[in-house]
């Protein structure tokens, strides 16, 4: 296959950035999208040009590191797929493909296609945990968890924190990400003691990090590589309302 790429190049956070066009030949349909980018980079390096910087690590769709907007779609047009698991067989010989970074105020560009997602860490630090010191845990089977609850919690916990939901949202909201964590913990008995405090403080951190608000367009769910359901956002809203109503402090 031969592919034409229009790739976003931006030297650093201060640079304005622009698209550059590259032709890549000898692409095999079994290659992953990132392997195709490797081919481009090898070509650039040998031409003594600057290779395209992009984030990636596990290349198995689980670490959440890779993050490219491909022809306007976060992680590309194939459903429930990360960029690293997108294969060139999903494109046609001669295609022109536009590649951009996640675009969101809360995710500033570091270089080219790599962005800074530390805002996600801050949201988790605000309460995405159960306060249990090492060594103080009770016997694991002392608290049974109904199987369907455990499964539902797992459905939410599968979030890989890649940020595609933010990139897909016209408001750059991280509600899907936030709701996945809140749901995961709210569904489990272990998450109950801090349930109310957690949702209030994580919501606050979300807004402070510069993420926008949710207007229910559903783009996040459509682009989530792990198929995290938007019903989690509904749960988040219920959790937040009930926590806010019963809170003694104004929220």
């Amino acid at each position: 296959m031969k592919i034409t790429l229009k790739v976003w190049r931006q030297k650093n956070a201060q640079d304005n950035g622009r698209f550059e066009t590259y032709n890549v030949a000898d692409i095999e349909s079994d290659m992953s999208f990132l392997e195709m980018m490797d081919v481009l980079n090898q070509q650039l390096i040998k031409d003594k040009k600057d290779p395209v910087a992009f984030d990636h690590d596990c290349r198995e769709g689980i670490c959440g590191m890779c993050s490219m907007v491909i022809n306007g779609h976060p992680h590309g047009h194939v459903k429930a797929t990360t960029t690293c698991q997108l294969h060139m067989r999903s494109f046609k010989d001669g295609d022109t493909i536009v590649v951009e970074p996640w675009r969101a105020k809360a995710f500033p560009v570091i270089k080219d296609l790599a962005v800074d997602r530390s805002a996600f860490d801050k949201v988790i630090q605000a309460g995405g945990y159960i306060s249990v010191n090492t060594g103080s845990a009770p016997e694991a089977n002392s608290v049974p968890v109904p199987q369907d609850m455990a499964e539902k919690a797992m459905d939410a916990a599968e979030c890989i924190g890649c940020g595609a939901c933010v990139a897909a949202c016209k408001n750059s909201s991280a509600m899907l990400f936030l709701s996945a964590k809140v749901s995961h913990m709210a569904l489990l008995p272990q998450g109950q003691p801090e349930r109310k405090k957690r949702v209030i403080s994580m919501m606050k951190a979300h807004d402070e990090a510069g993420f926008g608000s949710c207007t229910n367009t559903g783009a996040c769910e459509a682009y989530c590589p792990k198929g995290i359901s938007i019903t989690n956002i509904a749960r988040l809203n219920r959790e937040f309302l009930s926590a806010a109503l019963s809170s003694e402090q104004p929220v």
Partner: peptide, 16 residues
């Protein structure tokens, strides 16, 4: 024990 207390959603039997 520790992981369950942290909220790790391990697979469970019907009885929980």
């Amino acid at each position: 024990d520790q992981c369950v207390a942290q909220g790790v959603p391990f697979a469970r039997e019907y009885g929980g």
